[in-house]
Design a binder for these strands. Sequence first.
DNA 1: TATTACTTTATAATCTTTATAAACAGTTTA
DNA 2: TAAACTGTTTATAAAGATTATAAAGTAATA
Lengths: 152, 152
Amino acid sequence: MSHTHVHESHDQLKDALDTLKQTGVRITPQRHAILEFLVQSMTHPTADDIYKALEGKFPNMSVATVYNNLRVFREVGLVKELTYGDTSSRFDFVTTEHYHVICESCGKIVDFHYPGLDEVEQLAAHVTGFKISHHRMEVYGTCTDCSHKDLH
Amino acid sequence: MSHTHVHESHDQLKDALDTLKQTGVRITPQRHAILEFLVQSMTHPTADDIYKALEGKFPNMSVATVYNNLRVFREVGLVKELTYGDTSSRFDFVTTEHYHVICESCGKIVDFHYPGLDEVEQLAAHVTGFKISHHRMEVYGTCTDCSHKDLH
DNA sequence: TATTACTTTATAATCTTTATAAACAGTTTA
DNA sequence: TAAACTGTTTATAAAGATTATAAAGTAATA
């Protein structure tokens, strides 16, 4: 089971590096590390999370490098930037299409698969005349941990 | 037609002021002006938009006042805070339930009514165990104006 | 090797938002 | 009415996230 997961994330990283090669984006040690961290990460980290996580391996790395490369990854389509209510953006390695359920108490983000809302896009296109490119949806609530804490 | 709209926004403002009274929030001239601007506004303004729009009437008003009162309005449920990709939050006077279609080229926001996605919340609750409070969805694309501009 | 283009680092600057303290105004209480 | 209290605004500073800039470094190309 975890064996499978290791293989999965290994492949995902390899695919991501291939994408970079094909797009002509240089694969620097920093980029490799940031991607690796994003692929493995089950949390949806902020730029600062990534910066802190890698400062052991790259003591000289600049915050700007993290931001620069997250922008590069986003432009290439490897990474999605999530802007929730809180102060800083969160970054999500793009895999299959899924939505997020966010705990308003502790900030935990859980992935949540749901068959596409294509009809929403179609209706929006029809009503507004826009050329629709994509949509975004999240569900907010309280996770089980926080629900239990409230009882005490 | 516009006659109707005037009445509508007048009523909306009146309702909003009633809500403030009932909640025990003082109605200051600044609050009145901010609410009035929000109700009339068809764009979804940032705090700075509001600040700039009212500096003629209130030359001494502080930016903090705008932020403070937007927070107050949000806590009372009169206003919804929207965090899109761009740098600053946008504020939307709460009327009926609707979604937004956002032009990625010029930032225009068009309202868009769609029957609730209650089932999404139910499924999310079932799958994750969260107590769901609400969800958020937007559709992104290119508006007709910008689509035409691209052709030239 | 020389040149060029890209990347990182370090730092400063910008921008949004929040915090703080003093001045003000409205309301309540004695 | 005077005093006390509470909430509000203002002005300003501070915090935090992100971007811009310039110098130094590194890889790619001719």
